[in-house]
Design a protein around this nucleic acid. Structure first.
Lengths: 249, 249
DNA sequence: CGTTTATTTGAGACAACTCAAGTTGCGTGG
DNA sequence: CCACGCAACTTGAGTTGTCTCAAATAAACG
């Protein structure tokens, strides 16, 4: 069964509440087990980790947490996509990333959230109350190393975005964005050439540091040149070679 | 005695090798003790930490380590400034930050350096061989928390740079850069209005995502309007109020 | 003192921005 | 089922700020 199908089935079962009774099995068979922080937790600690988690659903447009609010829980995304953003002093909004299945949201050692997070589609999450999670971490010091690795990965992703946004060419920005977003999706499914989310163009603009109009014109051009195709479920990358050329040239 | 004077004296003594004989005292009285990772190490662990450290000098223009090379040591800056940068696929250089006294360089859990680092002036560092440092960390799990905090701080600084670079206005970029650089210096000395380094304009350009010419024109304008003054030892901020206005307007 | 490296200044091109007006899609309530 | 309002997307025309290219000057270095 392909990963995406497994995700769908897991989510169905999740909705029906099948896993609530045996939470340790829930984690052990979780679709994002291999790609998330949870995956670094050794099997013997799994039961305890499971017992702390709580499944959570978030509808499109709903906010999971706000920048600056007290960190009460941390989350692992199991399905769907969220946008992560900061409001800047001058009223502009900087989208700092998009969270996809397997991503960890919220930093347990910080008292306040570094960014806001809201759902771009229906999102399923695994919630861990911060206090319990911290205790769990402190009991098993080796898990701090796992958290450190995840944090370091995020640091490197942020540096990547920095390199992306410092590009002066809108066409290249857009091409690199599409490719790097695909790269992250491939963590779960190697074969993917369809990005399974409709990210509002305004969010792409605030991510890349462009205006909505420029983003729109670029997407229109790519579509006209048959490099991508925009459907109502997401973006299909039709010509990866062209896209790579545009990203590097 | 003002912090900056203490730094100078410490460095003098460091140069004379006074502290080499009693390394634990070296750390205990270190100028950056209060502002660095070391500051989070409890007193009882200090002696061991000290015994692993080795003072190091780096001349202007010398490279401390290269991006991609194996991580052999990690460092704490005690004096001077370094530029940290990545070379991008298209040949461009992205300056990801400037390291000042108190900063930790190198991530012990990564096998390879994420960026290159070289000295902008005479730099004094405290070197910790990675292997020993890792063992030290593993013995005292609570120190992983300290490392995590430092890493998270760096993540937030990188997000700040992201917000900075996504500005479309060169004037504002420059003003924000000067102010944020001052903010970091103030960690050691509250009163500072002189940035004590001559950062090459090319480095500022690669940090802000501008061209050298634009950086030069902005600095020239700020100088003409008596907002800053450039001396051969650094940049003096003459009109902080104006600078704040330019940064926000 | 010649050579390299860094800074300064000007003129012109162009890509992305701003502003303005329209279109499309979608959910809600009559 | 249609009308309405809102949000997201689309397109055009004109402006502008930064880049590019080019060249001169000033500093740093052996």
């Amino acid at each position: 069964m392909a990963p995406s199908q497994r995700v769908e089935q897991m989510n169905k079962e999740l909705r029906k509440g099948h896993f609530l009774a045996e939470k340790d099995r829930f984690c052990a068979y979780c679709v994002v087990r291999g790609t998330s922080f949870c995956g670094m937790v050794p099997n013997e600690d799994m039961a305890q980790l499971s017992s702390q988690s709580r499944p959570l659903t978030l509808d499109r447009r709903r906010t999971l947490f706000h920048q600056g609010d007290e960190t009460q829980s941390i989350y692992v995304v199991t399905s769907g996509t969220l946008r992560l953003y900061q409001m800047l002093a001058d009223g502009r909004r900087q989208v700092v990333g998009f969270a996809i299945p397997g991503d960890l949201l919220g930093f347990p050692l910080a008292d306040h959230n570094d960014y806001s997070a809201d759902a771009l589609d229906s999102v399923y999450l695994c919630q861990f109350p911060r206090q319990e999670f911290m205790q769990f971490l402190n009991q098993r010091a080796h898990l701090l190393g796992a958290l450190l690795t995840v944090t370091h990965d995020e640091l490197n992703r942020t540096r990547e975005q920095l390199a992306l946004i410092s590009q002066k060419n809108a066409e290249r920005k857009m091409a690199q964005f599409l490719l790097s977003f695909r790269g992250r999706q491939m963590r779960m499914d190697e074969e993917i050439s369809v990005l399974p989310v409709r990210i509002p163009q305004a969010d792409i603009a605030d991510f890349l540091g462009l205006t909505i109009e420029t983003v729109n014109r670029m997407l229109a051009r790519f579509t006209r040149e048959k490099i991508i195709a925009i459907t109502d479920t997401g973006v299909e990358l039709l010509n990866l070679i062209r896209l790579h050329m545009l990203a590097e040239a």
